[in-house]
């Protein structure tokens, strides 16, 4: 939904700001030109997910402006930036819970619409929010299967739960992902922060055949050192199953050790894309603080 000013203009930046440094990119981000971009990976294969020219304003606040980002198959992409840089808005747009004012997404080269969270999920995009969206009053298996319960005898909501089967499958899933949780019958409310995070991850990838992209907002924000290491290990494990993962984090060293590439955002724009292997923490922080959108490689 475009937000308009009282004078009838849309909530775009003033002309001088858009025209000068980024004229070429403005043109590139229009739909017709999208395939011929220079973000194509070295081996010539297309990225799994391409985000082109995505903008979004909330009232007068410009949360995102003309953002282009690629997500390659099987990579971990870190997104860093200060508070208000637009990281979360970007994630929510990919996850379908926020609609962009402009721009489009392609998946495997095909233009796709993620107008709703359900549409995103059908495309294989799963999002884990910072609050994890777990049900503290339900047990581990119930949380993993919520909304996708195995039932029998009666249709729809009247169906009887196949509890034993779900507990068995949940336990298998946890084992396959190497997640240490005593019993799938524990209510999630009694688990530790790290265990909760891992249950949320397990739930997101429980139906692996469909899931292609996993979006995670601050997966280790509330965790201690040991617990966050366990969670990071799980994220690597999931990547080894072929998923592409996008991670927002404030912990730069952690992102650099985990991710393949790191996108730096500032004031709603992408200011840099760094190769995590050859970037130092200092460089990353420097881009967060002093990066300029026009200089993006």
């Amino acid at each position: 939904m475009a937000v308009s000013h009282p004078d009838g203009l849309s909530a775009r930046p003033w002309v001088g700001e858009t025209l000068l440094p980024r004229l070429p990119r403005l043109r590139k981000s229009s739909a017709a030109d999208a395939p011929a971009d220079h973000w194509q990976s070295a081996d010539g294969s297309r990225p799994l997910l391409e985000i082109r020219g995505v903008s979004r304003s909330f009232g007068h606040v410009r949360a995102l402006h003309e953002v282009d980002i690629d997500l390659r198959e099987g990579e971990i992409l870190g997104i860093v930036g200060d508070n208000g840089a637009g990281k979360s808005t970007l994630m929510k747009i990919i996850a379908g819970t926020v609609r962009p004012d402009a721009g489009h997404l392609t998946m495997n080269g095909e233009p796709v619409s993620v107008a709703t969270a359900l549409a995103a999920r059908r495309l294989g995009i799963e999002m884990i929010y910072q609050d994890l969206a777990l049900f503290d009053n339900l047990d581990v298996a119930a949380n993993i299967f919520i909304g996708r319960e195995h039932t029998r005898w009666l249709p729809l909501l009247l169906g009887f739960l196949e509890k034993r089967r779900m507990h068995k499958e949940a336990a298998e899933l946890l084992k396959r992902l190497n997640i240490q949780i005593g019993s799938t019958r524990q209510p999630v409310g009694v688990l530790s922060g790290g265990q909760r995070q891992m249950v949320a991850i397990a739930r997101a990838v429980a139906f692996e055949k469909n899931v292609k992209v996993l979006l995670m907002d601050e997966p280790s924000a509330a965790l201690g050192a040991t617990e966050s290491e366990t969670v990071l290990e799980l994220i690597r494990e999931i990547r080894s199953h072929g998923l592409s993962i996008v991670i927002i984090s404030h912990r730069i060293p952690e992102v650099l050790s985990l991710a393949d590439r790191v996108v730096v955002m500032k004031r709603g724009e992408r200011v840099a894309t760094l190769d995590a292997g050859s970037t130092t923490v200092e460089e990353c922080v420097n881009q967060i603080v002093a990066g300029e959108a026009g200089a993006a490689a």
């Binding site: 969206a133 119930a142 909304g147």
Partner: peptide, 24 residues
Amino acid sequence: NTTKAGRHLFAVGGNPEAARQAAM
């Protein structure tokens, strides 16, 4: 205690926002 509706009742009451995210 044994149907999907009952399970969802606990879910909707326990965390309505999460229930929405689970496409309920």
